[in-house]
Design a protein around this nucleic acid. Sequence first.
RNA 1: GGUCCCGUAGCUCAGUUGGAUAGAGCAACAGCCUUCUAAGCUGUGGGUCGCGCGUUCGAAUCGCGCCGGGAUCACCA
Length: 595
Amino acid sequence: MIEKKILEAAAKGIKQLYHQEIGPDKIGIEKTKKNIKGDFTLLIFPFAKFSRKSPETTAHEIGEFILESLSEIKEYNVIKGFLNISLKTDFWLDFISENAFRQEYGFHTLRMDSPVLIEYSSPNTNKPLHLGHIRNNLLGFSLSEIARANGRNVIKINLINDRGIHICKSMLAYQKWGANETPDSSGLKGDHLVGKYYVLFDQQNKMEIKDLMEKGLTEDEAAKQAPLILEAQEILRKWEARDKDIIQLWKTMNAWVYEGFRETYQSLGVDFDKIYYESETYLLGKKLVISGLEKGVLVRKEDGSIWADLREDGLDEKLLLRSDGTSVYMTQDLGSAQLRYTEYHPSEMIYVVGNEQNYHFDVLKRVLKKLNKGYADHIFHLSYGMVELPHGKMKSREGTVVDADDLIGEMIATAESTTRELGKANEFTEDEAKKLFRAIGLGALKYFILKVDPKKNMLFDPVESIDFNGNTGPFIQYTFARIQSLLKKGMDTGFSFQSFKVDDIFLLDQEKNLIKIIYQFPAIINEAWAELSPAVIANYSYELAKEYNQFYQEVPVLKEEEDRKIIFRLALSSFTGQVIQNAMKLLGIDVPEKM
RNA sequence: GGUCCCGUAGCUCAGUUGGAUAGAGCAACAGCCUUCUAAGCUGUGGGUCGCGCGUUCGAAUCGCGCCGGGAUCACCA
């Protein structure tokens, strides 16, 4: 790319002028600010030391050198220590000619090297998905797309948490009060039906605890002695002993939940290449821990429990195997990491998991390192912040969760009413209209979630967040739809891209700014991948769409223009549309042709 | 209390390896539909980048110390 050439020329210039070896990558380059003349800017301040001249003079000398050594450069100017370089119009015209009709502009072709594993979603099968899961799923899916665009062989993994005491709680409540209710008989989605019993368990359990406390027990004692908890624990024991009835119930209820999840995943447009079930993998880590004990990197205490001592790393001791020999969460994660490593030999293993588990992943990596597993260094925890509501946090017990299915439904309904109010759905068939409302509603939701830096906590106001104006998904979709409409009109009027050839066409400043933003796209995809942040793509898309809208405003009526100018503008519109489409693909957002 | 993360306009968020006058949207106000989609565009007002010190040509960005908010520190997952 041209930036590289400029940097190399600058490095050469510095060497020749001031006899200093500077790596091209050590020189600062950036896109020139909007209101200043130039395309790229070099930061010359640091080299004033070597030249022993003022930054201005130094910049002029280097600028002169680059101008002479690179044919692409038209001119340069200097402001303080900023060397602003303008490229020849031909450079930008060539760029347009070469790329304007490349469908996959910005995307690397697929290389089949060792895969990247991306785990996301990882739901529990005792309740439906909520807003927090939505952030997880969208991040995981988008990140997978970004990795693919960067040429990686991506395996999307879902590790389903289908066993444990929390699952037994909803099973118990169903046994007691379910009265053979099914999704069909109740009209409830399977995951919601199971979730109903999980909540019921919690309510009943709380009442029991309250009663016991009134009889004089402490809260801790009450929580441990409540009959329902004891019964749930009994179910867990039976489950582990493969009790026929319990296993049957477990299978039935999980099947309901999976059917419910399937629908929600489909709505969100996310999918997986490999599904692991914790019920099948939860016993795996033990061997790893035992071997660590034999190698002497782990320690056994008097009661028989096994620990990792991480105090030298500034952390605490961490339990890996209980005194009764059963495994804990960490044991399971060690096992599942080893499993997926031996199955795929990935170059990277990414886990999309909330930031409340930062400590867990820190420990996981350190323990794997102690066990001498080289892949520990290739584990990345994409830690994302919580989604907060205006009136505090989401707590399932207090009924303040925002349910994923409800939210999706509301987004679509709002998209529908807004679209109808604007009178935009009139020309659509019922089917087309339905598809459109889905695309817009989900586009708004996805963009809203993804545009925020993953590591930050974010605020979601269910009322105010449903907006289709300004920095939103629908704005970008709308821009795309208008471009398609413009292209169609152009074609109808008889312009053909067949004859598209840019040579001496004068570029307006406005257009050039748009072209420069498009030019950046491949670099943006890279950056998003390096930072594991779809937000980079989202914010870029908005900048592009906004710039295009300004450009669009300037485009005069087609028929009043001379032909080649029109063709150039149509080509530029087409190119912009292509880039918008590609960017939206990376975010998992559909772009309707018409809206 | 230990560790980690966050703090930018009234609100929600951008801000590239430290760079030029810190940017968008929402909300408020004023304009623009006889022409390719007004879910748009143009303009106005709105800032002690939490506070202080330091590093240097230059700090929202890096370092240290405070203040505020969050997460986590279970023989739970």
